[in-house]
Simulated scan of single mutants.
Amino acid sequence: MPQQILLIEDDTRLAKMVQDYLGEAGFSITIAATGQEGLTLQHQRAYDAILLDLMLPDADGLDICRTLRAHCRTPILMLTAKGEPMDRIIGLELGADDYLPKPFEPRELLARLKAILRRGPLEPDSQVLRFGRLEIDSSAMEARIDGTLCNLTAHQFQLLEILAGRAGRVLSRDAIMTLLKGESLAAFDRSIDVHVSRIRAEIEDDPNKPRRLITVRGAGYVFARSQE
């Protein structure tokens, strides 16, 4: 079975050229013309690698990279017409595995793609956060209480992960919205309070008296470090 590659690129001519060339090399290429489409496709199925354009019509490729890396360890090769060293550095710091400036030779793209595929998926620094009876599994995108799965949407899980990953720190609503980049931001156009309420219904023993996800009046929310 050919390796599955997701190409997020709005230049249709370039995308077709890459699809044809890598297809002849034995890969199966799925094209997404926008960042939003790319994120949706990545959530729907597993890919062996992602080729990500930095300049997209609906989003900054760096934001897309950040969002992808928050939920998957798939190798990412960034493609960009922007050749400034700082862009390359930021992309790599956000989790991209390699960086190829445009214009590029198809043979170099193939060589770099094969190189990141040989490395395989990144191992997460910490797959599971544990707070007493609550476990938050980032790789599986699951939260469990005493082993029982919590009924959270992908967006609610991301919000929980953001708060739990910064346990003990008070996060304002503005700070939370800043951290909810890319695809997930649109899902939180309603009050964050509503989503927090739904998360509490799943992770708190008594949602009316929360001990894990606490409101700090006038400041925002804090996820408690120590819990039973």
Rank of each mutant, 00 (worst) to 15 (best):
I89V: 13
I214S: 01
D48C: 03
M55H: 08
D98R: 04
R88C: 10
D10A: 01
R173Y: 10
I50N: 01
D10K: 00
H155D: 15
G132H: 08
D60R: 07
A140E: 15
G220D: 08
S139N: 13
G120M: 09
S184N: 06
L7A: 03
G132W: 09
I162V: 15
A187W: 04
E135G: 11
G147M: 11
G182K: 00
P2G: 05
I203S: 11
S184H: 06
K16M: 13
V194K: 12
D205Q: 09
E9T: 01
T12S: 11
M177C: 05
L113I: 07
P210N: 05
L51V: 03
I162P: 07
G168D: 12
I76V: 15
D53F: 03
D98H: 08
Q42D: 04
R200E: 09
S28W: 05
A49K: 01
E123V: 12
I50V: 15
D53M: 03
G132D: 08
T215K: 08
G132L: 06
G26H: 10
D97H: 05
A164F: 12
K181I: 14
M78R: 00
I214E: 07
D97F: 02
Y99V: 04
H71Q: 09
L41P: 00
M141Q: 15
A49R: 02
E204D: 06
L39H: 01
V216M: 08
R45T: 11
Q42M: 06
A25D: 12
E142D: 13
A15L: 09
D87Y: 14
Q4E: 15
L113F: 07
K16F: 11
H71R: 11
A187Y: 09
R217Q: 06
I214D: 02
D20N: 12
L6K: 03
G35S: 02
P103N: 13
E105R: 14
A96L: 03
R45F: 00
T148M: 13
A224M: 11
R13C: 04
I29R: 06
E183A: 04
N208G: 05
E202N: 05
R217T: 11
L51P: 02
L179S: 12
L14G: 06
L149Y: 07
L51Q: 02
I89T: 11
R66M: 06
L68G: 00
T30F: 04
R88G: 03
A70Q: 06
M86A: 13
